[in-house]
């Protein structure tokens, strides 16, 4: 079972992890979504938000904007961070399940039509 967290804003990925108020927690087994729960993260300071994410026991975080600090801390807690992804949550999830979002050596992801990486360093 793999636990994936996605910060969400409406039906899209939240633009910043540190400012997001809602997290979608998805558990996946054999490539199939087993559970899908929403969590509120309002009025949490960064340290508590981080602690909460870690306590949720997530394996992967798919997000858009993320500060260096969060990336470092989550990686130190063995959470695989897939940053700078934007688009509609369902599309992103479908891409992830289809193996279209993959961490590459430099920490970026492969691009595709429905969800994209947008961090300015590999415009294609």
């Amino acid at each position: 079972m793999k636990k994936i967290a996605i910060p969400v804003f409406g039906d899209r990925i939240s633009n910043r992890l540190d400012c997001c108020e809602n997290i979608l927690l998805i558990s996946i087994e054999d490539g199939v979504i087993k559970t899908r729960d929403a969590f509120r993260l309002t009025h949490l300071n960064p340290a508590v938000k981080l602690a909460m994410l870690v306590e949720l026991g997530i394996d992967v975080l798919i997000c858009n904007g993320i500060t260096e600090f969060y990336t470092r801390r989550l990686s130190d807690c063995n959470v695989q961070v897939i940053p700078w992804i934007y688009g509609e949550v369902d599309n992103v999830l479908a891409c992830y399940l289809n193996g279209m979002i993959k961490i590459n050596g430099s920490g970026g992801i492969n691009r595709n039509q429905k969800c994209k990486k947008l961090n300015g360093d590999n415009d294609s």
């Binding site: 939240s14 910043r16 400012c19 108020e21 858009n64 904007g65 934007y86």
Partner: peptide
């Protein structure tokens, strides 16, 4: 692109 995805301001949402 949507400006929210580019600017990523803390007030966007």
């Amino acid at each position: 692109q949507y400006c929210i995805d580019v600017l990523k301001a803390n007030i966007c949402e």
